[in-house]
Simulated scan of single mutants.
Amino acid sequence: MSMNALLRHRLFWPVAVLAALLLVNLLLTRGFYNIEIKDGHLYGSLIDILRFGAPLIMVSLGMTLVIATGGIDLSVGSVVAISGALACLMISDLGNQNDTGGVLTAVAVALVLCLVLGAWNGLLVAGFGIQPIVATLILMVAGRGLAQLITDGQITTINSSPYKLIGGGYWLTLPFGIIVVAALLGLTAFLTRRLALGLLIESVGGNAEAGRLSGIRSRGLMITVYAFCGLCAGIAGLMVSSNVSSADGNNAGLWIELDAILAVVIGGTPLTGGRFSLSGTVLGALIIQTLTTTIYSVGVPPETTLLVKALVVTIVCLVQSPAFRAKVFGRRRMPHRAAPPGPPQDVRAETGLVTRDGVGA
């Protein structure tokens, strides 16, 4: 592969940015790459990036498919809060919070509700023709209020070992959240890249009317995609709440929708829809989580953290922009040679001035 082709590859710049962030940590943070095994579990900064980045990867995964249809989902942060709030409320009402059956029931009910909320977003968009940003903004506002109603405006605290496993536990030496993300990512990649589902989603995002005329049931497909996004946000909500063994309806998942959109865009999926990259989304989410970890590791003052993060993300987006790179790093274009006199070939062909052998009559 030539250098120009490598630079044009959609995953080159996300990989380069992630490598640069890891290099900064190598130079500035002592022991950043150290990985230890304690009590049969893997520990280290790299493991922490994966563990704390798992909820963002999960939300970004659902957001990718929504954006691929030409939509957007601003309600995922509220769905994260609702999922954790409902699961923790049901577990807190159990006589024995370590009862596996009761915990599984609470998890299932929370995920079903999130699935329904996602499908509701899809119904508003595909069924009633409401703009995606407006339809999901409704649930973004109402959902945050619903999460606070579930928790009665308080932080619901639980002490459940089975529930703790989802976001804060380990399995096979790895954080359980990473395993859940890997499993769902693999399933999504199989359904969208090995089957025709991914092509159908891209067709809807590229031209919904053309897809409908081709026999694609775009309405049902869009509802399914939004429902899947709600499910992903629900799983992320379980991870966030189980990691701290509590649910905060006001702050859980706050602004995670913006990080998810950034992760999708950094990964190379255009907001206009029509195509998507799951691997790019994962890289984008890891870039954002690594950036957050780096900011805290190097001792950036808390009051400037958001400004530094915004600045770095802006630079990343500019570097990825072909137009920006052409203006800053590109060569001068050579002047075009003047076209020979006479009508162009296609005009001569239409007017019958071209013989069978291609020479003008």
Rank of each mutant, 00 (worst) to 15 (best):
S2G: 14
L7I: 15
L7S: 07
P14V: 01
V17A: 00
L18C: 09
L23E: 08
L27Y: 06
L28C: 13
R30S: 09
I35D: 07
K38F: 14
L42K: 09
L42T: 15
S45C: 04
I49N: 01
L65K: 05
I67P: 03
L74V: 14
S75T: 13
G77P: 15
S78F: 01
V80Q: 14
I82S: 07
A85K: 10
A87M: 04
L89Y: 10
S92W: 03
G95N: 14
N98G: 15
V103K: 10
L104V: 07
A110V: 02
C114H: 15
L115A: 13
G118I: 02
A119T: 10
W120D: 09
G122P: 04
F128S: 11
P132V: 11
T136K: 03
G143K: 11
A147P: 13
A147N: 11
L149D: 13
I150F: 01
I150H: 04
Q154I: 15
Q154D: 14
Q154F: 13
I158D: 01
N159L: 06
N159W: 06
S160L: 00
S160C: 02
P162L: 05
K164S: 06
K164M: 02
L165M: 08
L165V: 06
I166R: 10
G167A: 07
G169A: 06
L172V: 12
P175A: 01
A182D: 08
L185V: 14
T188M: 12
L191C: 05
T192F: 01
L195Y: 12
L200G: 00
V204A: 13
G206R: 03
A210E: 11
L213Q: 08
M222D: 14
I223H: 09
A227H: 08
G230Q: 10
L231Q: 13
A233F: 05
I235C: 00
G237D: 03
M239E: 01
S245C: 02
S245A: 09
S245I: 02
A247C: 02
G249M: 01
N251I: 02
G253M: 04
A263V: 02
V265N: 01
T281G: 03
L283D: 03
L283E: 05
S297A: 07
V298D: 00
V298L: 02
V300W: 00
T304I: 09
A310I: 09
T314K: 10
F324R: 11
F324N: 06
F324H: 12
K327E: 01
F329M: 14
R332F: 03
R332N: 09
R333M: 14
M334N: 12
M334C: 06
R337P: 07
P341V: 08
V347K: 15
V354M: 10
V354N: 12
R356L: 09
D357Q: 09
G360P: 11
